[in-house]
């Protein structure tokens, strides 16, 4: 029933599919690849070669083609692969109570959190830095390098708070952390642990 996907952690989903299949990773990957290939039977083998960085394409397609899939310039085949994983994931997780579907959350970044900082640092590239001790322009880079996940606070209607962790590399269609707070989204989430609200602060 999804009409728009703004974030999808494909690697986690594909791990989940493989593990659910009883560790038959190769079989699942092969199956996904096969079906994606069928859909794109008309696509030249060249395209597959360019996707050799995908773990399940494997070494069959010459390594080192140095393909950089830009955020928007994703090839159609790689999109099909990705959407095949998405479709499989949706079917598999629908009746799995371990994957919780959280609805109606108000999502915010606490004022002193890393996620909050990360929302602003991209703009610091326009800051004047000559007379300052630190290079503000590179702060974004530094934060991106320091942490691959960002925590946001999700508040339900009953005032129960959850911490939602996002893989910064998993946003789709050029969405980012800042956009989440403005959308009415359903989050598919896996419970991984506990923390305190204070634990989200930069200092912690």
């Amino acid at each position: 029933d999804l009409i728009k996907v703004v974030y999808f952690d494909e690697q986690s989903a594909s791990d989940y599919l493989d593990i659910s299949a009883g560790g038959k990773a190769v079989t699942t990957a092969e199956d996904v690849r096969q079906r994606a290939n069928n859909v794109h039977a008309e696509v030249e083998a060249k395209v597959a070669a360019k996707l050799s960085w995908l773990p399940f394409i494997g070494g069959s397609a010459g390594a080192g083609t140095g393909v950089e899939a830009s955020r928007t310039g994703q090839s159609m085949l790689s999109k099909t692969l990705s959407n095949t994983i998405l479709t499989d994931y949706l079917a598999k997780s629908a009746d799995d109570h371990r994957v919780r579907q959280l609805r109606g959350l108000r999502v915010t970044a606490p004022g002193d959190s890393m996620a909050y900082m990360k929302m602003f640092t991209p703009y610091m590239i326009i800051a004047k830095t000559e007379d300052q001790g630190i290079d503000l322009a590179r702060l974004d880079e530094a934060l991106a390098g320091a942490k691959g996940y960002y925590e946001l606070l999700g508040e339900a209607d009953d005032d129960v708070k959850h911490v939602l962790r996002f893989n910064i590399a998993a946003f789709r269609n050029n969405y980012g952390l800042t956009d989440l707070g403005r959308m009415r989204l359903v989050f598919h989430a896996v419970h991984v642990g506990h923390t305190t609200e204070r634990g989200l602060g930069m200092e912690a």
Partner: peptide
Amino acid sequence: DLLDVYDVVLAGVEYG
């Protein structure tokens, strides 16, 4: 008090 931490796999807009 303790908050539950969730790793998000997917976020999307639902129909309806």
